[in-house]
Write a protein that binds this DNA or RNA. Structure first.
Lengths: 118, 118
DNA sequence: CGGGATCCGTCTTGATACTG
DNA sequence: CAGTATCAAGACGGATCCCG
Protein backbone atom coordinates (compact mmCIF):
# COMPACT_ATOMS: atom_id res chain seq x y z
CA UNK A 1 0.00 0.00 0.00
CA UNK A 2 2.53 2.56 1.13
CA UNK A 3 5.06 2.81 -1.64
CA UNK A 4 7.82 0.27 -1.28
CA UNK A 5 11.47 1.16 -1.02
CA UNK A 6 13.12 1.11 -4.39
CA UNK A 7 15.26 -1.88 -5.16
CA UNK A 8 17.97 0.00 -6.98
CA UNK A 9 18.56 3.18 -8.94
CA UNK A 10 18.13 1.40 -12.23
CA UNK A 11 15.42 3.15 -14.25
CA UNK A 12 14.06 -0.17 -15.45
CA UNK A 13 13.84 -1.56 -11.92
CA UNK A 14 12.08 1.63 -10.79
CA UNK A 15 9.61 1.42 -13.65
CA UNK A 16 8.93 -2.20 -12.74
CA UNK A 17 8.30 -1.22 -9.14
CA UNK A 18 5.33 0.74 -10.51
CA UNK A 19 4.05 -1.40 -13.36
CA UNK A 20 5.78 -4.75 -12.94
CA UNK A 21 2.80 -7.02 -12.56
CA UNK A 22 0.25 -8.69 -14.79
CA UNK A 23 -2.46 -6.05 -14.52
CA UNK A 24 -1.19 -2.49 -14.16
CA UNK A 25 -0.07 -2.09 -17.76
CA UNK A 26 -3.38 -3.47 -18.96
CA UNK A 27 -5.18 -0.74 -17.06
CA UNK A 28 -2.85 1.79 -18.64
CA UNK A 29 -3.43 0.20 -22.02
CA UNK A 30 -7.17 0.68 -21.58
CA UNK A 31 -6.68 4.26 -20.51
CA UNK A 32 -3.94 5.37 -22.89
CA UNK A 33 -4.61 3.36 -26.02
CA UNK A 34 -8.32 2.67 -25.80
CA UNK A 35 -9.48 5.84 -24.11
CA UNK A 36 -11.37 4.17 -21.29
CA UNK A 37 -12.14 6.25 -18.23
CA UNK A 38 -14.62 4.39 -16.03
CA UNK A 39 -14.35 1.53 -13.55
CA UNK A 40 -16.82 -0.66 -15.36
CA UNK A 41 -15.10 -0.02 -18.69
CA UNK A 42 -11.86 -1.42 -17.30
CA UNK A 43 -13.78 -4.35 -15.84
CA UNK A 44 -15.24 -5.11 -19.25
CA UNK A 45 -11.85 -5.81 -20.85
CA UNK A 46 -11.48 -9.37 -22.10
CA UNK A 47 -8.81 -10.30 -19.57
CA UNK A 48 -11.37 -10.10 -16.80
CA UNK A 49 -9.69 -8.21 -14.00
CA UNK A 50 -11.30 -8.68 -10.59
CA UNK A 51 -12.90 -5.67 -8.93
CA UNK A 52 -10.57 -5.61 -5.95
CA UNK A 53 -7.50 -5.85 -8.15
CA UNK A 54 -8.74 -3.07 -10.37
CA UNK A 55 -9.52 -0.94 -7.35
CA UNK A 56 -6.06 -1.56 -5.93
CA UNK A 57 -4.24 -0.81 -9.19
CA UNK A 58 -6.17 2.38 -9.78
CA UNK A 59 -5.36 3.51 -6.25
CA UNK A 60 -1.67 2.78 -6.75
CA UNK A 61 -1.58 4.56 -10.07
CA UNK A 62 -3.27 7.54 -8.47
CA UNK A 63 -0.79 7.47 -5.59
CA UNK A 64 2.08 7.43 -8.07
CA UNK A 65 0.57 10.36 -9.97
CA UNK A 66 0.13 8.37 -13.14
CA UNK A 67 -3.65 8.68 -13.00
CA UNK A 68 -6.08 11.26 -11.68
CA UNK A 69 -9.48 10.47 -10.26
CA UNK A 70 -12.30 12.92 -10.74
CA UNK A 71 -16.02 13.17 -11.36
CA UNK A 72 -17.77 13.20 -14.67
CA UNK A 73 -18.89 16.83 -15.13
CA UNK A 74 -22.02 15.62 -16.93
CA UNK A 75 -22.96 13.18 -14.18
CA UNK A 76 -21.51 13.85 -10.74
CA UNK A 77 -22.20 10.28 -9.62
CA UNK A 78 -19.73 8.88 -12.09
CA UNK A 79 -16.06 8.58 -11.23
CA UNK A 80 -13.65 8.96 -14.10
CA UNK A 81 -9.96 8.15 -14.31
CA UNK A 82 -7.65 10.05 -16.56
CA UNK A 83 -3.93 9.70 -17.17
CA UNK A 84 -1.60 12.46 -16.05
CA UNK A 85 1.23 13.61 -18.28
CA UNK A 86 3.47 11.31 -16.31
CA UNK A 87 1.07 8.50 -17.04
CA UNK A 88 0.78 9.37 -20.71
CA UNK A 89 4.52 9.02 -21.06
CA UNK A 90 4.05 5.27 -20.70
CA UNK A 91 2.69 5.08 -24.23
CA UNK A 92 6.07 4.13 -25.73
CA UNK A 93 6.37 1.24 -23.27
CA UNK A 94 2.92 0.03 -24.26
CA UNK A 95 3.57 0.32 -27.97
CA UNK A 96 6.89 -1.49 -27.63
CA UNK A 97 5.14 -4.35 -25.84
CA UNK A 98 2.33 -4.36 -28.37
CA UNK A 99 4.83 -4.58 -31.21
CA UNK A 100 6.68 -7.41 -29.49
CA UNK A 101 3.46 -9.34 -29.02
CA UNK A 102 2.27 -8.79 -32.57
CA UNK A 103 5.53 -10.13 -33.95
CA UNK A 104 6.19 -12.90 -31.49
CA UNK A 105 2.91 -14.30 -30.25
CA UNK A 106 0.73 -15.98 -32.77
CA UNK A 107 -2.88 -14.95 -33.03
CA UNK A 108 -2.54 -11.60 -31.30
CA UNK A 109 -4.21 -8.54 -32.69
CA UNK A 110 -4.86 -5.03 -31.49
CA UNK A 111 -8.35 -4.27 -30.38
CA UNK A 112 -9.91 -0.91 -30.96
CA UNK A 113 -8.04 2.19 -32.09
CA UNK A 114 -8.30 5.22 -29.81
CA UNK A 115 -11.73 6.70 -29.95
CA UNK A 116 -12.21 9.94 -31.79
CA UNK A 117 -12.56 12.96 -29.58
CA UNK A 118 -16.21 13.49 -28.83
CA UNK B 1 5.11 -23.72 -14.39
CA UNK B 2 3.28 -25.20 -17.33
CA UNK B 3 2.44 -22.24 -19.51
CA UNK B 4 -0.82 -20.67 -18.49
CA UNK B 5 -3.73 -20.21 -20.83
CA UNK B 6 -3.60 -16.80 -22.42
CA UNK B 7 -5.95 -14.23 -21.04
CA UNK B 8 -6.83 -12.64 -24.35
CA UNK B 9 -5.45 -12.14 -27.84
CA UNK B 10 -4.15 -8.69 -27.00
CA UNK B 11 -0.43 -8.55 -27.80
CA UNK B 12 0.23 -6.54 -24.65
CA UNK B 13 -1.60 -9.02 -22.46
CA UNK B 14 0.33 -11.87 -24.06
CA UNK B 15 3.63 -10.11 -23.52
CA UNK B 16 2.68 -9.56 -19.90
CA UNK B 17 1.87 -13.23 -19.51
CA UNK B 18 5.57 -13.82 -20.20
CA UNK B 19 7.28 -10.89 -18.52
CA UNK B 20 4.62 -9.34 -16.31
CA UNK B 21 6.28 -9.61 -12.93
CA UNK B 22 8.92 -7.74 -10.98
CA UNK B 23 11.88 -9.92 -11.94
CA UNK B 24 11.72 -11.32 -15.46
CA UNK B 25 12.51 -8.07 -17.25
CA UNK B 26 15.42 -7.46 -14.90
CA UNK B 27 16.93 -10.78 -15.92
CA UNK B 28 16.42 -9.80 -19.55
CA UNK B 29 17.96 -6.39 -18.82
CA UNK B 30 21.06 -8.10 -17.44
CA UNK B 31 21.26 -10.39 -20.43
CA UNK B 32 20.34 -8.00 -23.24
CA UNK B 33 21.70 -4.68 -22.06
CA UNK B 34 24.53 -5.69 -19.75
CA UNK B 35 25.71 -8.82 -21.50
CA UNK B 36 25.52 -11.10 -18.48
CA UNK B 37 25.42 -14.82 -19.10
CA UNK B 38 25.96 -16.67 -15.81
CA UNK B 39 23.77 -17.53 -12.84
CA UNK B 40 26.00 -15.78 -10.33
CA UNK B 41 26.22 -12.69 -12.52
CA UNK B 42 22.45 -12.32 -12.41
CA UNK B 43 22.52 -12.93 -8.66
CA UNK B 44 25.03 -10.11 -8.26
CA UNK B 45 22.69 -7.43 -9.62
CA UNK B 46 21.87 -4.74 -7.08
CA UNK B 47 18.19 -5.68 -6.81
CA UNK B 48 19.16 -8.92 -5.08
CA UNK B 49 17.07 -11.63 -6.68
CA UNK B 50 16.80 -14.87 -4.66
CA UNK B 51 18.28 -18.05 -6.11
CA UNK B 52 14.98 -19.86 -6.34
CA UNK B 53 13.32 -16.96 -8.11
CA UNK B 54 16.20 -16.61 -10.55
CA UNK B 55 16.19 -20.31 -11.24
CA UNK B 56 12.47 -20.24 -11.88
CA UNK B 57 12.62 -17.22 -14.21
CA UNK B 58 15.48 -18.64 -16.24
CA UNK B 59 13.55 -21.89 -16.63
CA UNK B 60 10.45 -20.04 -17.79
CA UNK B 61 12.42 -17.92 -20.21
CA UNK B 62 14.00 -21.04 -21.61
CA UNK B 63 10.63 -22.72 -21.88
CA UNK B 64 9.28 -19.72 -23.78
CA UNK B 65 12.29 -19.77 -26.12
CA UNK B 66 13.48 -16.35 -25.06
CA UNK B 67 16.69 -17.76 -23.60
CA UNK B 68 18.94 -20.70 -24.38
CA UNK B 69 20.94 -22.63 -21.82
CA UNK B 70 24.28 -24.11 -22.78
CA UNK B 71 27.77 -24.82 -21.47
CA UNK B 72 30.73 -22.52 -21.53
CA UNK B 73 33.01 -24.00 -24.20
CA UNK B 74 36.05 -22.89 -22.18
CA UNK B 75 34.80 -24.51 -18.97
CA UNK B 76 32.28 -27.29 -19.34
CA UNK B 77 31.21 -26.98 -15.72
CA UNK B 78 29.78 -23.53 -16.25
CA UNK B 79 26.28 -23.00 -17.49
CA UNK B 80 25.69 -19.98 -19.65
CA UNK B 81 22.45 -18.34 -20.65
CA UNK B 82 22.06 -16.50 -23.90
CA UNK B 83 19.10 -14.70 -25.44
CA UNK B 84 17.47 -16.13 -28.54
CA UNK B 85 16.43 -13.85 -31.38
CA UNK B 86 12.96 -13.88 -29.91
CA UNK B 87 14.47 -12.79 -26.61
CA UNK B 88 16.61 -10.10 -28.20
CA UNK B 89 13.51 -8.54 -29.67
CA UNK B 90 12.62 -7.40 -26.17
CA UNK B 91 15.29 -4.71 -26.34
CA UNK B 92 12.84 -2.00 -27.44
CA UNK B 93 10.61 -2.78 -24.47
CA UNK B 94 13.57 -2.47 -22.13
CA UNK B 95 14.81 0.76 -23.64
CA UNK B 96 11.32 2.25 -23.53
CA UNK B 97 11.12 1.42 -19.84
CA UNK B 98 14.61 2.71 -19.23
CA UNK B 99 13.74 5.99 -20.91
CA UNK B 100 10.56 6.29 -18.88
CA UNK B 101 12.46 5.73 -15.65
CA UNK B 102 15.22 8.15 -16.52
CA UNK B 103 12.72 10.90 -17.22
CA UNK B 104 10.20 10.17 -14.50
CA UNK B 105 11.98 8.69 -11.51
CA UNK B 106 14.43 10.92 -9.75
CA UNK B 107 17.90 9.59 -9.08
CA UNK B 108 17.85 6.79 -11.64
CA UNK B 109 20.80 6.17 -13.86
CA UNK B 110 21.87 3.47 -16.26
CA UNK B 111 24.53 1.12 -15.02
CA UNK B 112 27.09 -0.27 -17.39
CA UNK B 113 26.96 -0.02 -21.15
CA UNK B 114 27.01 -3.30 -23.05
CA UNK B 115 30.42 -4.88 -22.88
CA UNK B 116 32.53 -4.80 -25.97
CA UNK B 117 32.61 -8.02 -27.92
CA UNK B 118 35.48 -10.22 -26.75
C1' DC C 1 32.76 -23.83 -6.16
C1' DG C 2 28.85 -23.18 -9.48
C1' DG C 3 24.09 -24.01 -10.15
C1' DG C 4 20.67 -24.95 -8.52
C1' DA C 5 16.49 -27.64 -5.34
C1' DT C 6 13.82 -27.73 -1.13
C1' DC C 7 11.56 -26.18 2.94
C1' DC C 8 8.84 -22.93 5.15
C1' DG C 9 6.95 -18.58 6.94
C1' DT C 10 5.11 -14.44 5.01
C1' DC C 11 3.15 -11.35 1.79
C1' DT C 12 0.36 -10.73 -2.40
C1' DT C 13 -3.04 -12.07 -5.60
C1' DG C 14 -7.36 -12.99 -7.21
C1' DA C 15 -12.35 -15.04 -7.30
C1' DT C 16 -16.40 -14.33 -5.28
C1' DA C 17 -19.84 -12.25 -2.44
C1' DC C 18 -21.57 -8.35 -0.73
C1' DT C 19 -22.56 -3.08 -0.02
C1' DG C 20 -23.57 2.22 -0.25
C1' DC D 1 -21.70 2.13 -10.60
C1' DA D 2 -17.89 1.82 -7.91
C1' DG D 3 -16.19 -0.12 -5.09
C1' DT D 4 -15.10 -3.38 0.15
C1' DA D 5 -14.85 -7.78 2.70
C1' DT D 6 -13.55 -12.28 2.91
C1' DC D 7 -10.67 -15.92 2.29
C1' DA D 8 -8.08 -19.43 -0.36
C1' DA D 9 -4.24 -20.08 -3.42
C1' DG D 10 -0.15 -18.90 -4.99
C1' DA D 11 4.18 -16.09 -5.25
C1' DC D 12 7.97 -14.47 -2.78
C1' DG D 13 12.25 -14.57 0.02
C1' DG D 14 15.84 -16.39 2.77
C1' DA D 15 18.06 -20.12 4.62
C1' DT D 16 19.64 -24.24 3.96
C1' DC D 17 20.82 -28.29 1.59
C1' DC D 18 22.44 -30.87 -2.36
C1' DC D 19 25.09 -32.63 -6.20
C1' DG D 20 28.71 -32.93 -9.85
Amino acid sequence: MTSQARRSNCPIACALDLVGDRWTLLVLRDMLLLGKTRFDEFLASPEGIATNILSDRLARLEEEKLVERSRDPDDGRRVIYRPTERGKSFVPVLTAMRDWGLKNVEGTRVFAPPRAKR
